[in-house]
Computed example of a mutant assay.
Amino acid sequence: MSERLKIGFLPLVDAALPILAHEHGFAAEQGLALEFVRDLSWATVLDRLLYGHSDAAHMLAPLAIATTLGIGRPARSLSVPFVLGLNGNAITVSNALADRIQPEAGLGNAVDVGARLKTAVAGHGRKPRFGVVHRHSSHNYMLRYWLAACGVQPDRDVEIVTIAPPFAADALAAEEIDGICVGEPWSSVAVERGAGRIVLTTAQIWRRGVEKVLAVPTARLEEKRGAIERLVIAMRKAGEHFVDPANWETNAAILARTEYVGADPALILRAISDRLRLVQGGALVHFPDFMFQYREAANFPWVSQAAWLYAQMVRWEGMGFDPDAARTAMGVFRPDVYRAALTGRNSPLPGASSKVEGGIGMPLGVGAAQGTLVMSPDRFFDGKTFDPERLEDYLASLP
């Protein structure tokens, strides 16, 4: 008899791997019967998870950490045994603002667009307002990281508000906001409606930025450890299927269904194939690794990525650095569970659990406990690196 797992998610393309693990039978092969609960806000996904209405969830990586630390609500320990993907977000702004900060065709350069935005902010008349999907989201922290590095002070020069992903395009069309940082397909929906233009992807800010994760209450993980490990196996198989061009159209059609993303399959296909339409009626632009769901160590829960997210919380939440909190934050990511699930299987496993983020400038072979692992460039746009062993020095170096 199959073991049932209920998984919460938001209608986003990067919820793909558990959905496709179910649809293509990879979960059933592992003795799992998956049930999905679709929500429209991250707050509801989190509430369902914390109160036992789901066993695991498609989750914002920083939200799993903030919940464990008790930021904004009583602390509840979550664990992340699997990263559902890196990258996948775009910064889309109103047509009027796009004319000022990215007048050229194509995706902008992060430094140049930031410099023009700094000039535009000075003469805007009011603070431009940007929408992000949650206070504790990589969208928020990546947007802030880019703005600050370009001399635009978040909360002083611009306003940042929260909008649930399915309503981001509506808010931009209604001129309630001047820009959004959101995952697909919602930036593309805004472009197709003529509400704005894509000027940057977050992969241009941090080439290998951690994005969504599978989050599990730590107590539930221990209770269902075998089932969660089998889910990791099934999702890795789904990832291999997902990135194969021969399967793109099939997977886009599955994800487009109303019970999942509920969007035009053509828009989902673009995201899967790393293609974006930047302006209504424009040609498709190919941006390699716009979404990064499987290759290299894309699904590995690097402790150093959790540490970077904690550093951004310290920077922007005004909570101060605490070494105990830092250790707790890093402990949310569980490479031990990932390794236990995939040891002895055809999947490369890093030899280390942490690394210097942003330190790879060209393809680099790294030590692997299993298989062969070559890592691609993971640079931050401003050239900085992040060493989790020197977290306080890193914070002191930031503008």
Rank of each mutant, 00 (worst) to 15 (best):
P377I: 10
P388G: 06
R156C: 04
A238T: 00
Q293C: 07
L364W: 06
A98K: 03
L63K: 13
A253G: 13
A28D: 11
R129W: 06
T92L: 07
R339L: 03
Y294S: 08
I91N: 03
A61C: 09
F82G: 00
R207I: 00
M313R: 12
S54D: 13
V366H: 07
F287W: 11
V113F: 11
V261T: 04
V210K: 04
P166K: 09
R156T: 14
T119L: 14
K127Q: 14
P377C: 10
V199P: 01
P128Y: 09
P62N: 12
P81V: 07
A27K: 04
R144Q: 14
E223P: 00
L231I: 08
L20P: 00
S41D: 12
F26G: 01
I71F: 14
G194F: 15
N109M: 06
P18N: 07
V111G: 02
A168R: 02
L84K: 01
E175D: 14
L398W: 13
V374A: 10
W308H: 09
E259N: 11
G106N: 13
A246F: 05
A368S: 13
A90F: 09
L342D: 02
P18I: 03
D155V: 07
E259A: 10
E159C: 08
H134I: 04
R207S: 13
Q293K: 03
V374T: 14
Y394S: 02
V337M: 07
S304T: 04
D264C: 01
A149H: 06
S354E: 13
V158Y: 10
V332N: 02
M291L: 15
A122L: 12
